[in-house]
């Protein structure tokens, strides 16, 4: 169960009131998670990452550093498809991240927690929590952070953030939990010769423009009743769709 604080963060995230509001949401998320600051980096292909959220300089510096060096809990979380929790950087053996251990000494980051954002083979980015003091996250905070990372991944992939208690609009991040959607994503990626994230965007665009749930559209794709063309339209369903990419 997510906390009330995180439910509020997700609610604000859903309202989406532009960049300034997003900064406030990020700060609220950090407070809810009991950390000093946080960053959200989006993978933009290759090793470069784009900062989507950055609450403060300390968190930003740490994120910059680990991506410049190519080592640290963030890159490790992204490569390993699992969270990496470091309650006390001072206790990490130097050989784990040799360059980072030298450079990070001057930064105001003592505890770092990284949560990969993605859907299966689709890697979207990483959520990094930074705290000035050592100590673990509580079990509830870890759960909250995971839900936030999933919501941010869905958002980066053009979806709507699920409401609290699983209540969600018809076309929501919840739909991204269904096996048939993952299968359809794989099929569309081959049909259109695009990447998996692009395939998912096309599926979503089609679901949106035809006013049907993503799961239904996905079932039709898997059963080969529907084939998307390069514009994200289905056969015999020539609805105009403005693709974002």
């Amino acid at each position: 169960m997510i906390s009330d604080g995180m439910a509020e963060v997700l609610r604000l995230l859903q309202r989406d009131e532009g960049f300034d509001a997003a900064a406030d949401v990020a700060v609220l998320a950090a407070v809810t998670l009991g950390v000093t600051g946080l960053t959200v980096s989006l993978a933009t292909g290759g090793d470069r990452a784009e900062l989507m959220w950055c609450t403060d300089e300390a968190a930003g510096s740490f994120e910059d550093l680990q991506f410049t060096l190519g080592e640290g809990p963030g890159p490790e979380a992204v490569r390993g498809d699992a969270m990496v929790l470091v309650p006390d950087l001072a206790l990490v053996r130097p050989e784990r991240w040799p360059a980072l251990s030298v450079e990070a000494a001057g930064l105001a980051a003592r505890a770092v927690f990284c949560f990969p954002m993605g859907i299966g083979a689709i890697r979207v980015g990483v959520l990094t929590l930074v705290r000035r003091t050592a100590g673990p996250l509580t079990d509830g905070q870890v759960g909250d952070a995971q839900v936030l990372a999933h919501a941010l991944a869905g958002r980066a992939l053009g979806s709507v953030v699920p409401g609290p208690n699983g209540a969600a609009p018809a076309d929501s991040a919840d739909a991204l939990l269904h096996a048939v959607v993952h299968q359809a994503t794989g099929m569309v990626s081959v049909q259109l010769d695009v990447s998996l994230p692009q395939a998912l965007l096309r599926l979503r665009a089609h679901a949106y423009s035809s006013g049907r749930p993503l799961t239904d559209v996905s079932r039709d794709v898997v059963a080969r009743r529907l084939r998307l063309d390069l514009n994200g339209n289905g056969d015999g369903n020539p609805l105009p769709v403005s693709d974002k990419d």
């Binding site: 083979a121 689709i122 359809a184 081959v190």
Partner: peptide, 18 residues
């Protein structure tokens, strides 16, 4: 990690099926 592995498997089912 276990849940992510399962999702990758579903995506790959789709890739190979097509």
């Amino acid at each position: 990690y276990a849940l992510t592995s399962r999702i990758v498997l579903e995506q790959v089912k789709g890739i190979l099926a097509e």
